[in-house]
């Protein structure tokens, strides 16, 4: 059994929800996530990638019970997360933690670092004050901060240090599963490297499972075992990381990979990236929501929404024409090897 099973999850928000819009009929529903399903095995990392409006963060917020789902279930160790109460809920709160994107706003500015880290200990454990203090020092050490940092306020620390404090707070209760919502997006690359190293070390040491939410494909590729690509609230493709990056089956995944500027000059230019703009999630296109931007789209795509098909044990894709995408890539590859053989020949 997987540690976390998300099944058919949907979350709709009401926009314009006041009394007057309701009477005028201008009330709108925003379908932030639609029918999202995935599983995370213990000790594994699932990457959730997508652009703005994809609904990545909403998925994390439903799992942590910040939002109630409109439809579908989240099961953790087999139990429906949104039906938990009492001590089961306490236990869930302890074993599932979250780290947020902006380190500057994710800590209470009026609490010293030590007090922030100690707070979950105070609520969930019956450690004495001295024991809590010791545990805080341990945690600070785990994330490579100095014990002196306990007496600092958040505004006295740098972004990278604050993010480590967030991680320490998340670790305080020995969690099994951490949701990382864009944890390095606000950081410089050299600082990002430290946080990523730390996350990998911690995963190994404490056998943690991660849900890693990010728009940064490079980071996702580095850290995740599996990747799910989201577009306008739906998962369009899911596969083991290596396969997804080498052989994308969904046109959106393909376009997204081509759009990422590679830190290697002379590589493939982004000319075959995605055209057009991301439609508003308030009014997603009919049929396949990607069809207006898709070069493979046919009439069928504007009517029928493709289901998330399971191709083999590991890969799922939601596209009527994934075979054409795969065939195109095979062609390109053979062309590439062909031309490189020719180049070698002329040398």
């Amino acid at each position: 059994m997987a540690l976390l099973e998300v099944d058919g999850l949907s979350k709709h928000f009401v926009v314009n929800g006041g009394v007057v819009p309701r009477l005028l009929g201008t009330r709108k529903e925003l379908q932030a996530i639609r029918n999202v399903s995935f599983e995370i095995e213990a000790g594994q990392t699932l990457g959730l990638v997508g652009e703005s409006g994809a609904g990545k963060s909403t998925v994390g917020n439903v799992i942590t019970r910040i939002y109630e789902p409109t439809n579908g279930t989240v099961r953790y160790n087999g139990a429906n997360v949104h039906e938990l109460s009492g001590s089961d809920l306490q236990a869930y709160r302890q074993s599932v933690q979250m780290v947020f994107q902006d380190p500057y706003t994710s800590l209470d500015p009026r609490y010293k670092i030590g007090r922030t880290i100690a707070e979950p200990l105070k609520i969930h454990t019956d450690l004495s004050k001295a024991e809590r203090k010791e545990r805080v020092s341990e945690l600070l050490e785990t994330v490579n901060l100095e014990p002196e940092h306990r007496d600092r306020y958040p505004h006295e620390l740098s972004g990278g240090q604050l993010q480590r404090v967030s991680i320490a707070t998340a670790l305080a209760l020995d969690p099994e599963f951490i949701i990382l919502d864009e944890p390095v997006s606000a950081l410089d690359v050299s600082v990002q490297a430290r946080i990523l190293n730390l996350l990998m070390e911690l995963q190994e040491e404490y056998e943690l499972s991660y849900l890693f939410i990010s728009h940064n494909l490079g980071v996702i590729k580095h850290l995740c075992d599996h990747v799910a690509v989201m577009y306008l609230g739906e998962i369009v493709e899911q596969a083991p990381t290596g396969e997804l990056f080498e052989n994308p089956h969904h046109p959106y995944t393909e376009g997204l990979l081509n759009s990422v500027p590679q830190p290697q000059p002379g590589g493939s230019k982004s000319t075959d990236g995605l055209t057009g703009e991301i439609p508003s999630a308030l009014n997603p296109p009919a049929g396949c929501s990607f069809h207006p931007r898709c070069s493979y789209a046919t009439d069928q795509c504007s009517v029928d929404a493709p289901p998330l098909e399971t191709l083999d044990s590991e890969r799922k894709v939601a596209c009527h024409h994934w075979d054409a995408v795969v065939a195109d890539q095979a062609d390109e590859r053979s062309e590439l090897t062909h031309s490189s053989v020719q180049n070698d020949g002329t040398k």
Partner: peptide
Amino acid sequence: NEAFIRSLEVRGVSTPR
């Protein structure tokens, strides 16, 4: 809407607190 309030919720801090 600040992240730190949401992170407190996730950590199971009670609403009155």
